[in-house]
Write a protein that binds this DNA or RNA. Sequence first.
DNA 1: TATTTTTTTGAATACGTATTCAAAAAAATA
DNA 2: TATTTTTTTGAATACGTATTCAAAAAAATA
Lengths: 334, 334
Amino acid sequence: MNKKNYTSQDVAELAGVSQSTVSRVFAGNTNVSEKKRKKILDAAEKLEYQPNAHARSLITRKTMMIGIVMRNIRNPFYSAVLEIFHNRLAALGYHLIFINSENEEIQEKEITQLLEYNVEGVIITDALLSSSASQKFNRNGIVVILFNRYTEKLESSAVFCDNYLAAKQIATYLVEMGHKSFAFISGPSDTSTTIDRLKGFKEVLDDRGISNLVIEPGNYTYESGFKAAQELITRNKNIDCIFCGNDIIALGVMDAIRVIGLKIPDDISVIGFDNIRMSEWPSYSLTTWEQPLEDMVDSTVELMLKEISDKSSEPQVIMMKGHLVVRTSVRQKK
Amino acid sequence: MNKKNYTSQDVAELAGVSQSTVSRVFAGNTNVSEKKRKKILDAAEKLEYQPNAHARSLITRKTMMIGIVMRNIRNPFYSAVLEIFHNRLAALGYHLIFINSENEEIQEKEITQLLEYNVEGVIITDALLSSSASQKFNRNGIVVILFNRYTEKLESSAVFCDNYLAAKQIATYLVEMGHKSFAFISGPSDTSTTIDRLKGFKEVLDDRGISNLVIEPGNYTYESGFKAAQELITRNKNIDCIFCGNDIIALGVMDAIRVIGLKIPDDISVIGFDNIRMSEWPSYSLTTWEQPLEDMVDSTVELMLKEISDKSSEPQVIMMKGHLVVRTSVRQKK
DNA sequence: TATTTTTTTGAATACGTATTCAAAAAAATA
DNA sequence: TATTTTTTTGAATACGTATTCAAAAAAATA
């Protein structure tokens, strides 16, 4: 039943040539006469020969594999990220090893797996990378790029949105729309996204002498947004706008507000971050900040290819802009 | 910068033993004296030695890699599927090669990639598998399991919900709730899920002498549901309930209905299929059919392991039940 | 202690490919 | 046609590991 896998040796025998020549044909080497090439391809087809990628990678030292580590694949933002990364990298011949990290920080076991398989690069989204992990990858010549995150110490390259600037513009927008009383629902407090978004937001409020910002902790999920909004509203009756750490939080917030019986944006304005597809669904129509996802992925892929071909290049940070997408969840107040 | 990767040979030299013995330690072989084992582990740690998975797989003929092919990762149902499959398989030491098929049918190129990497198994969800592709996998001793799909010819194993029976129960429920005028929004018409759900639904209606079923084509996306509902309602004023091919369609349908200005369930009842997380969000509160996702994944993994260890086993079909989850999108009519 | 049995060890080899190097064949030039 | 240059080819080898087999060492038994 389980037929033997044919090898380049089998093809060579059937075609009456040496294994080297078969290998040359499949490695795309041009120095093979048309006559033999044809014979070899015929024989290969007859045997349904497939080169063995593992044997090949042993010699070439190219595995054409990239690891992608995610923590929150159920967040539609990251589903989209995964899809786009796959499409870009597959087009370049790379294969994706998908790792769903269950913990906030990428685990020893997961690192080991990626090292054993000699991935050429690792993309880490939505997860933290310890300094020691980062060094481990570096020492093994594996390129690491953080996506939508960065670390202070700059041990690996990173591609992300300028969250600080975006949050400033969001705050300015809310203030100019006439809001007086502000809340922020955060993600995990040790993520760069949360830190920068809060920083920019708070700075604008401080500049304008607004000191009543309420901060409610969340973890970038619908459920955490829902719960945070409930607490927030029952505790602080006068909140008139909520800046949500990301869109999926915002959806939970909006649902909670409505369950309580308040109206959006009449009673409370809500603003998100990411511009996931759902935010434009009429049930939500969420005003939010769009991250230029496709561009971010393109930059990440480009940077990764560059670093793979030149391992000695210094870690690099690419910061992108994005823009406000105005829908109907923020009200112009008098 | 790019330091050489150390090999078992390097470890052997540092520890003063042979390469064979180092290999034995890392292959988990017990026949190594404690003294040498310790020396080897020390040396390995000092060099940060990682066995090379590709070289290993060449000998053992086990790659510990599984391919997972998906078409619609943006559908939250499949994000969840991916997450659960990853968690189960990672716990067993398997690695996931993720492939996002852009076409309805899995492509030659994608098959080749999986063959080249000698994956031990392939899980195909939400995509079609041609007969020739199926044979190709079989001939190479690669186990294929269809998830949430099956093919008529039974060339590979399949795990799915009894869609026919579920649709019958859904139809019965709608009839008994007093509905008179029915619509079905389908997925692609060549998928087994669509075929069986429509068949079961129609059969019950036929049995009860109801012949006014309107069928609107969709493709298992929010957008297709939205559009289908718009057309349906403007064309057929009297529809009083819509059975949606899956939940994400149902969400689009609900939004479209509300945009038009009708109320759910007062004017139109909506029922879905899958029970994705969003269907319980208060904005939707969708009555739907729950697929026993965790159980389906568990069965798939179990079946896959069995077929990997016994390649000569016959293709097997596992059909699961699921159950109706009643929320508030279906009305009891008089 | 002498002998037998069991455990540990290393040399040799294989997995399936790409590449180097030298030889052979073909093509280009004189 | 004879010579030089270029192209094609195959033998040998390497990538990094696991495993077989026989020998050596250790443990158990007489």
